[in-house]
Computed example of a mutant assay.
Amino acid sequence: MPPSSLQIDPATNRLLGARWLASPNYDARPAGNAIDLLVVHAISLPPDQFGGPWIDALFTNTLDPAAHPYFETIKALTVSAHCCIFRDGSITQYVAFDQRAWHAGASQWQGRTRANDFSIGIELEGCDTQPFEAAQYQSLVGVTKALLATYPTLQPGGIAGHSDIAPGRKTDPGPLFDWPHFRRLLTAA
């Protein structure tokens, strides 16, 4: 399915056409928390390297700490994101959008804490030192359009980076994520 025509199944709150790999790292959103924030993240495992099964393994609690020295330092994490957009633009969804994924950690947005309660987290396979791929921007625009169409409480002004909701603690999606380019693509879509 082309990124521009992505849709969310209202029965499952899952992205049609995305690969589904269920993460155990989620729970119900607290009552009264409308989805009004989209958080863009970046992840690479090991750091600054792409490819391999490591992101899936992290989000499904199956990461082998012996596979890389860095993995020993994160083996106890229980984290997830709603989706990850890989370098080729392919999308894997781990948590249904109506559920609370564990992506933001200690966070604050517009005076509210606990951003996981009211946000959707989208990971991009990337890092602070390398630019993102055109296919990733296209897929992110497609997912964002589908989310905006499905959740009326989410507006274009409610899109932020992990660094915006956890300043000083997080840097992603990093200095090479082109926010103006992404917003132009989103507006044109």
Rank of each mutant, 00 (worst) to 15 (best):
I120L: 15
W20V: 15
V141L: 00
A160Y: 01
D164C: 14
R29W: 13
N116K: 03
Q136H: 10
P2N: 05
R114M: 08
F182D: 01
Q155V: 10
Q7T: 06
P156D: 12
M1W: 07
I120M: 15
A146I: 00
T73C: 07
F86E: 07
P53D: 11
T187R: 13
T144I: 04
S139H: 01
P24Y: 09
A31L: 13
C84G: 04
R169A: 08
S44Y: 02
Q110Y: 08
Q49I: 04
R184D: 00
Q138P: 01
G168H: 10
L140E: 00
R87Y: 09
A67S: 08
L77I: 06
A22F: 08
H41Y: 13
G157E: 12
T171Y: 05
F97V: 06
G126R: 01
A104Y: 01
W179E: 09
A34N: 14
R114P: 01
G142L: 01
G105T: 05
N13A: 15
P47W: 06
Q93S: 15
Y94K: 03
V39M: 11
L154T: 02
R184E: 01
P24F: 08
T62H: 10
I85Y: 00
D88M: 15
A42I: 03
A149C: 10
S107L: 08
H162L: 08
T150R: 13
D117S: 09
T73N: 03
H181E: 11
R184W: 00
P30F: 15
G52R: 09
P175H: 10
D48C: 06
G142Y: 01
A18G: 15
D36A: 04
K170I: 05
H82N: 14
L147R: 00
G168S: 07
L148F: 04
I74K: 10
P53V: 05
L124S: 05
H103E: 05
S23C: 06
L124P: 02
P3V: 00
A101Q: 02
A160E: 06
D36F: 03
T62C: 08
F71S: 10
Y70Q: 13
